[in-house]
Design a protein around this nucleic acid. Sequence first.
DNA 1: AACGTATGCAACCGCAACATA
DNA 2: CTATGTTGCGGTTGCATACGT
Length: 214
Amino acid sequence: MANSPTPIDIEMNINNNNSKAACNSGDVQVRKGPWTMEEDMILINYIANHGEGVWNSLARSAGLKRTGKSCRLRWLNYLRPDVRRGNITPEEQLLIMELHAKWGNRWSKIAKHLPGRTDNEIKNFWRTRIQKQMKHVENSSVGQSSEQTEAPSTSHEASTAAAATATTAHDAVEAYSPQSYTANMESFQNPFPPDQSNDNVWSMEDLWSMNLLN
DNA sequence: AACGTATGCAACCGCAACATA
DNA sequence: CTATGTTGCGGTTGCATACGT
């Protein structure tokens, strides 16, 4: 998504971030909201030269008016060179289903088994795609429990729907078994729009090549 | 073309666990 | 042992964009 970097809150950090521990020392102005290209460059440059470290002091040393927390999040979820962006593949989706059935909402744990994917991305994926499917199927099965549920337009939806109708997470995995899954793969149509790698104003390739130039 | 609504994702918040002085 | 600071996690929100009317 192309975040326009314009609306950025700047507020006095009067320990508003955390009741237990301030993420910044002193009452410096803290920027919030979408990251600008300049901030990204600063963070990338700094980490390239000094490596990751204590995030609060990193933010200060790099001259970023951000909390360490914000820097860490930005780095881990977006700027890290090994972050994979773009569509979740059917294989990854299957894995997510399986691991979620096993562990529940342990997104970071699940993310560790999906190289290049972040917990945030998986969490978002689950909420927006899988849960939507589940709700959809739930509704249609309540309304017409004795009848067949609405025919999914894709096999992806079919298998997701099968998983969603399951009463337990384990059932969901059963319904989403590799057998039924691969059986559907031939007619699989990618439900997602074409590559959205250009979903930010600047691509990571741009940022990294610019960083190299520096 | 204009408007309203739905969707997807980046970023924030609060909390808990852990580390250290 | 206690206080303070840091990190990591899961839940939630805000906003840009896509889509439908």
